[in-house]
């Protein structure tokens, strides 16, 4: 007869393995958090020491002259992102409404959903080429508009899919309640479905916004960058990520400092926009509401 009782050494090996694996996973988590903390530390340390009023009020100075800022890039980024949001968010939300309220279960809906996922995974540099081929080639010059449209194309699939997911969480009984009152379908979609899913949809839009706000590659061949204040949407325009890219690769310490400061501002803007909307949507709700 073989002995079936587990031996003591076997049990202690099992325990030891358990402890080793636990230790490894704790260690890995620390290893992962180190670069994050390092990046944040460098950003704040290098960025804050280079920030001054001129950064927010001046355009870049030519090489050799000290001072200067990235004010035109901040304005440029805001304009490009405004164009992107004005185009991308409504189209994205409408696409999500179609997928959830009209096309769910149809082959058309399935195709569009798949296409949105495909578009979501397209590398940003390819979107840059697409923007170039679709707009710049026909306009014959780089422009803020081209940059904005390219970024809006990147926002659409994200907004569409979050809108769809959020609308699916709205209980069907609410739609039935509205139909039962003789409310037309379009009104039900707007006032009941979208209204109920609004907090989630707004968060999704903000995440899409934050994602494209830091994008550089799609702007390389569309917005192109500029050292001057923007005058119209139909000319090359500066953008924070582009300017950071140019300054980071330059050989001048002065510009390196501006790149760090620009990165700090960019990340702060991204975090603020996400945080602000989360805060606003969490307030102004009725007691006991969703």
């Amino acid at each position: 007869m073989t002995q079936i009782r587990p031996s003591r050494s076997n049990a202690s090996i099992r325990q030891a393995t358990n402890h080793i694996v636990t230790a490894i996973s704790i260690l890995s988590t620390i290893v992962v958090l180190v670069p994050l903390i390092a990046i944040l530390f460098y950003l704040i340390y290098k960025g804050a020491s280079s920030l001054n009023l001129a950064f927010f009020t001046h355009t870049p100075k030519p090489v050799g002259e000290s001072g200067g800022g990235m004010a035109n890039s901040i304005v440029g980024s805001s304009l490009v992102l405004l164009v992107a949001s004005l185009m991308g968010i409504p189209i994205g939300i409408a696409g999500g409404v179609y997928l959830s309220e009209y096309g769910s279960g149809t082959w058309m809906g399935a195709i569009i959903r798949f296409t949105a996922d495909v578009l979501n995974g397209v590398p940003s540099i390819v979107m840059g080429i697409a923007g170039y081929a679709l707009i710049v080639v026909h306009q014959h010059h780089f422009s803020a508009l081209a940059g904005g449209v390219t970024l809006s194309i990147m926002m659409i699939p994200t907004v569409t899919r979050t809108t769809e997911e959020m609308l699916r969480t709205v209980p069907n009984s609410l739609r039935e309640a509205a139909y039962g009152l003789g409310v037309p379908r379009w009104r039900t979609v707007l006032s009941i479905s979208l209204r109920s899913a609004a907090p989630g949809i707004i968060t999704g839009c903000m995440l899409a916004f934050a994602r494209v706000a830091g994008e550089t590659a799609p702007l390389l061949f569309t917005a192109f960058g500029s050292n001057f204040w923007p005058h119209s949407l139909n000319e090359p325009i500066a953008a924070l990520p582009l300017q950071i890219f140019v300054y980071a690769l330059s050989p001048y310490d002065e510009w390196h400092r501006l790149a760090w400061a620009g990165s700090l501002v960019l990340i702060t803007l991204i975090m603020l926009s996400v945080g602000l909307v989360r805060y606003v949507t969490s307030r102004g709700q009725l007691k006991g509401g969703m």
């Binding site: 039935e176 009152l181 003789g182 006032s191 009941i192 109920s196 009725l286 509401g289």
Partner: peptide
């Protein structure tokens, strides 16, 4: 029509819930 499970509109106040049939139309 009144349904099996109560389905008030959670984003609306009590007042707006009652008025919804008229307001939404």
């Amino acid at each position: 029509m009144v349904f099996q499970r109560p389905n008030p509109f959670p984003t609306m106040s009590i007042y707006d819930n009652v008025a919804s049939g008229l307001k939404l139309n």
